[in-house]
Write a protein that binds this DNA or RNA. Sequence first.
DNA 1: CCCTCCTTATATCTGGCAGATATTTCTAAT
DNA 2: ATTAGAAATATCTGCCAGATATAAGGAGGG
Lengths: 179, 179
Amino acid sequence: MARRSQTEMAVLGALSMQPMTAYALREAIRDVLGHFWSESFGQIYPTLQALEQQGHVERREGPRAGSSTFVITASGTAHLHELLSEPITTTPSRNGLLLRLFFGRTLGSDRCRELILQARADAERSLADYEELRRTVAVEDAGSPDLPYIMTTISAGRHSAQALIAWTEEALTLLDGAT
Amino acid sequence: MARRSQTEMAVLGALSMQPMTAYALREAIRDVLGHFWSESFGQIYPTLQALEQQGHVERREGPRAGSSTFVITASGTAHLHELLSEPITTTPSRNGLLLRLFFGRTLGSDRCRELILQARADAERSLADYEELRRTVAVEDAGSPDLPYIMTTISAGRHSAQALIAWTEEALTLLDGAT
DNA sequence: CCCTCCTTATATCTGGCAGATATTTCTAAT
DNA sequence: ATTAGAAATATCTGCCAGATATAAGGAGGG
């Protein structure tokens, strides 16, 4: 199976909410989907060109000279539905923290404990962010048919952050006797 | 900051346990670090060549004709320590499941529920794997100074799988009224 | 009114990296 | 002896992130 560009899915998804410039697209993906997705300019520009050639998006006059706003077409909406229906491609995880802990004896137990404490602090901040995001979205998107779907993604972030915090406690206990 | 090859870290780490061929290296990384790391041949071969040129590994007669076993050198061990000490580079997460749920109204609520159920089944299998792995490692590596470090990585997998299962319940509830 | 800084905006290049694939050698079973 | 499969080495394509170059418009201060 030819590897599909995952970028197309995110780009078309974002454009399905409203027309945008490439720049705004990246902002939107970072700000709205940022908890579970990311795209770089290096991918967005060529992807928009490809989508334009396929007729899935149309280029309109942008907010300033030489600037373009992209609009999703009917065929683009259909293509988005197709892409969303494709089986999920799981990218192999690379967890730098766990790799360091696995070779923790080489790194040293003090360093390991520092890394875990850092991870806990990060997770606590992230958990607070998710709690606030939930409140904000509940108010701003109240009544929207998209609300329950958006809430599932925020819930995933919350559960993940909570699990991380719980894990750091157990990990510190496990390393208690380690040299 | 020049992007460092993360592959070097995993390769040197694996070779620090025992000398191996490139093929065995990939097997070891998949089987032992597989829960939080992965490497492909496309990266392992050029990385071994680079490490050899830098003197961090040495090539020895392999188990058959034209085959090479790689041994980590003293400078390689030092280099591994350096790499482990570097700040963790976080690769941006791309969660295909959450992306589909976010645009769940386009995909359809039935499809979304299927995806969530699939995720729960996967997580339950994964949780069972972690439980078994914990028992196996506790016996096989009993008394090893590496044991507590390895246990932290298994614990991370368990917590993550448990969180995923808990999330699926909440997600299904959230989608209860969704069309 | 001009200078400067920040934001918006477009675009390209390098290199990390995964996955597929081609090829050869060894081993085990039939 | 033949064949199937595993072990082993290697390369290529294409996705992708991050850095970087460039420039236009707006805001603010002097």
